[in-house]
Design a protein around this nucleic acid. Structure first.
Lengths: 69, 69
DNA sequence: CTAAAAAGGGCAGTATAATGCACCAACAAC
DNA sequence: GTTGTTGGTGCATTATACTGCCCTTTTTAG
């Protein structure tokens, strides 16, 4: 269910040539926590996601769902 | 910091003519929790946000930030 | 191949989100 | 006025996210 967001984080992090440790340190979250998020385990809080998003140059958005499938 | 998302929830809920109790029941989250989210207090988990988003016909997205401002 | 770097995971302690309950405020009726 | 509806809050308990420590697996560099 959360794999999707985790994979987005992972791909974005890779494209920026950052290791999990790099990103975790820069975002101020534990490496252990980032690892769990990237593999789709756990249920991160909004603040944790936003800390990561900030470093990744991304943002969390709540949008009306596109209606298709 | 989280007011933004809370306000999105609140506005979308209103536009669907749902009370906080309606939405909370439909989404399977406690009314107490929804209230906190809408006024920007607390730090909801991804699963809580997704339950609400589902009922609201919305989705959580992690996107590359538009560079402006 | 070996060695190092990076990623993944188990576990236990701490911090905090989620919840129920009880209560108050604002407003609408009327 | 009272009554009902809706939204906001404090508090205590329960559930769980976050963390550090340690270890294993996988990938990368040489």
């Amino acid at each position: 269910m959360h794999q999707q967001l985790g994979e987005v984080v992972k791909e974005r992090r890779s494209s920026l040539h950052l290791t999990q440790e790099d990103l975790a340190d820069m975002a101020g979250v534990a490496v252990r926590t980032l690892k769990a998020i990237e593999v789709g385990k756990g249920n991160p809080s909004l603040s944790t996601l936003q800390k990561l998003a900030e470093v990744l140059g991304m943002e969390i958005r709540l949008e009306i769902k596109k209606l298709n499938k």
